[in-house]
Design a binder for these strands. Structure first.
Lengths: 228, 228
DNA sequence: TATATTTGTGTATTAATTACGCTTATAGAT
DNA sequence: ATCTATAAGCGTAATTAATACACAAATATA
């Protein structure tokens, strides 16, 4: 009997704004059934690399500019995760700087939307499971890889970085120790720009030196942010 | 155009014996071409979960008893990784206690064999890439999850555990600090059995308390073995 | 009984983490 | 101009963890 299994890719795209973690969803219309929100994704073309399939779908459906992308997990244990056919989904984990991404000028914006992670609606298929898997990956990786920077603008304030960690990890941090530790790595540099926010001492903008990080990483350096 | 992509699973099965890391390979015969050694695996059945497919293939081809199994990575970026058809492979990472596994009494043993990791022959398809990915995973995970125990017999000597770490990570360790650290976790317990090896002070056998580890893990404990 | 071999243990030094509070620069109100 | 509120920036002492390092104990064999 010939194999009759389809292969799709789906992307969990995280963004961070106004002190909140967001995920990007699209409105999935299938048949006459109720429209569910779903992760962006779709079937892989015959002559298309998996990674190109995700990139294509992201471009077509949402037009986001990707800062970080890696394979997350392949979902294929539940035979009926898609009720129409057997579909195996290779899920990807994506981080973007949502401040610079204008979602989809070209498609109707109603169908693509950011949802605060605490306010995600019911999702199609097993997409909730995929999202939860991605969230676990995000939390884990944040502590041992400098991926937090991929959720922020190129130049950011320490308070923003700190809030990002607190928010996503749902933990309190000592502001001073956090700053000290990050700076001790030598992968974050201060700029000469200052925040123009009112009502307090102006804050310096900083930026992440990715090149420096990659070099240190090669030399055996371990990034790690962990809190009691 | 209909999707025409096949989906397979492959397993990288690691074992550890006589102070060496081994990988399990099978002889792949296809057509009249030269037989290559390859990772155990094969196509997924239409109504079969991915994980069941790996387990089935492992059972059919090698008959090993699995101690640890997790999804490794899905290889589907190289369109031509299999020259016959487009095949996407979901690779799995498997650890076994090779001392208790008798490989394949039922199939001809010539076709299933352990290879020391330094002596792996040329492999079929992109299996070398898959193996390297698994090896990287093994090295990384050894430092932050107690998976070394899944390569050892239920009861083991400290010297064996220590050698396993040294061998796989290709690093020297201070014997005393290593022991102190492992014991400080409280997840390894001494038994009352002693080694009967000759020529030195007899060594106590220890065993890993998995239940205890899982509990500590839930409480926020972090296993970590890292060396300068 | 002496020698070789492997296991088992302790401590001092150094480095990293944690806990903690005051000063500075700005905006806005008076 | 002065006062108040707000957030940023900085330093140090106390605690905890990691590292470096050497000798004693138990066995087998000569």
């Amino acid at each position: 009997m010939l194999q009759n299994i389809r292969i799709a890719v789906d992307a969990v795209v995280f963004g961070y704004q106004h002190g909140e973690l967001y995920v990007l969803l699209i409105k999935q219309k299938f048949g006459t059934e109720e429209a569910y929100w779903a992760l962006p994704g779709g079937l892989v073309l015959n002559d298309e690399a998996l990674i190109d399939a995700v990139k294509r779908e992201l471009k077509e459906e949402t037009n986001v500019e990707v800062n970080y992308l890696e394979q997350l997990y392949t979902f294929g244990d539940d035979i009926n995760r898609d009720s129409r056919n057997r579909v195996i989904s290779v899920a990807y984990f994506v981080l973007i700087d949502s401040s610079k991404t204008l979602i989809k000028a070209d498609t109707d914006a109603d169908n693509v939307q950011w949802f605060a992670i605490k306010e995600v609606p019911q999702l199609a298929f097993d997409h909730k499971l995929i999202l939860n898997t991605a969230l676990a990956r995000l939390k884990a990786k944040l502590t041992y890889q400098p991926i937090g920077f991929d959720l922020l603008p190129e130049e950011f304030l320490f308070s923003e970085l700190e809030n990002l960690y607190c928010t996503i990890l749902e933990k309190e941090i000592d502001r001073r120790n956090f700053r000290k530790k990050i700076l001790s790595f030598g992968i974050v540099e201060e700029t000469d720009r200052f925040s123009e926010k009112k009502g307090g001492r102006p804050a310096k903008f900083f930026k992440f030196n990715k090149k420096k990080y990659k070099q240190l990483d090669k030399e055996g350096f371990h990034f790690e942010i962990r809190f009691a």
